[in-house]
Write a protein that binds this DNA or RNA. Structure first.
Lengths: 211, 211
DNA sequence: ATTAGCTTGTGAATGATTTCACAAGCCGAC
DNA sequence: GTCGGCTTGTGAAATCATTCACAAGCTAAT
């Protein structure tokens, strides 16, 4: 298959959320225009995004909400649950461990790990913080393919390597540090400070002029 | 000034982090190639990004770490501290309120607000959760221009409108819901579940083939 | 069965971003 | 001072993403 742009995948995720809301509201069909309006994009964009994966609508009619939902779910790989581990039980790690938005979308947090003896054993909702040392063992046992990394910058790279060796294939990294991705592992960086900086830039350099 | 792409601003934020690290390591100068290597991009990209804003290097020599740091800081609007308020003291809001990464980069959390009486008065590090009802009063008094929104989906839009009316100019939104931005207000959405879904898509559709 | 009214799917056109490639310029050695 | 080795800054080219525009196709009404 041709390469798919990240922006397309990001929009698909958005479409899926709206479709589920539409379904909950009792709608059976939806047009590309309606879907576009919810997501702040254009109907052509919606159709182009979908066209990379197939043909899901009926001309003159639009899309069946339920069918399109299922199709996007399959495309994104959400047709089955994903097991994820959270590495680091600091403020952010602890918050994410209990974040309902993950489980709502099929991402099951299978474990939370920390090296700090004071944190080990702590309860986070239904989870108990486990010792860092159990990481490899648990990854081998539970076979999660995704890890969420929420540790201090210095601790990040060694943990990436350990996770990779144990079988993790993708890492969502919250540590503000450049990481080297081991072979066969994808790393996505999320940086809260950068998001604020983008806003600060906009305010400083007149976003108002964006016609 | 010409329009600057978000991707450029995002990279500038990254460059700044590396420059600060380089400075801490005692380096005085750096070439576009070295900076590019740290950020996983190319030297041409680094030079092009900077060229939108001026000319900061010396041919044959590269850039003075300290000067370039300062220049990027100015470009991003980080030459002064930013006051921000956090709206919603749930798991994510509470974590962000205590996140050192914000204050480290000049974003001062001036207040945390929640509507839940059980949360009001709770301590979060040096901050105390304040009642939702004080929001407008405090925004008027402290004049923050940025708000971080960490409330349930249903509560989000009304709070956007209240913040905007009180003087907030930019909102970092963690609520997984489409928001209408009032005139003159910029909204940036951050969605943790979407980030995981992008990883899931990659794993499902063979990221390995990305040569 | 034909027509009218919509809406999809998709090449082609446009627009944006990244990469290329090289002249211009700086420094240090001799 | 001039030569050699590097590195910047930047137009031009290439690549990537979005928007346009329209033929194809479906449904409902008559």
């Amino acid at each position: 298959m041709k390469h798919i742009a990240e922006s397309t995948v990001r929009r698909l995720s958005l479409y899926l959320r709206f479709l589920e809301e539409y379904a909950a509201q009792g709608h059976n069909t939806i047009s590309s225009g309606e879907l576009a309006a919810s997501g702040g994009t254009t109907s052509a964009q919606v159709r182009k995004d979908l066209s990379f994966f197939g043909s899901f609508g009926k001309r003159g009619m639009g899309y069946t909400v339920r069918d399109l939902s299922g199709a996007i779910r399959d495309i994104l790989g959400l047709d089955h649950a994903w097991n994820v581990v959270i590495v680091g039980a600091g403020k952010i790690g602890a918050a994410l461990a209990q974040y309902r938005g993950f489980s709502d979308r099929g991402f099951q947090v299978g474990g939370v790990y920390d090296a700090d003896p004071a944190k080990i054993g702590t309860r986070l909702g239904a989870l108990t913080v486990r010792p860092d040392a159990d990481l490899e063992k648990d990854i081998t046992r539970l076979q999660p393919r995704i890890a969420v990394l929420c540790v201090p910058p210095d601790a990040a790279q060694p943990l990436v390597d350990r996770c990779a060796k144990a079988g993790i294939r993708a890492i969502l990294n919250f540590a503000p540090v450049p990481l080297v991705a081991p072979n066969g592992v994808t790393i996505r960086d999320v940086n809260m400070a950068t998001e604020l900086e983008i806003l600060a830039f906009g305010l400083t350099n007149g976003t108002e002029g964006k016609k």
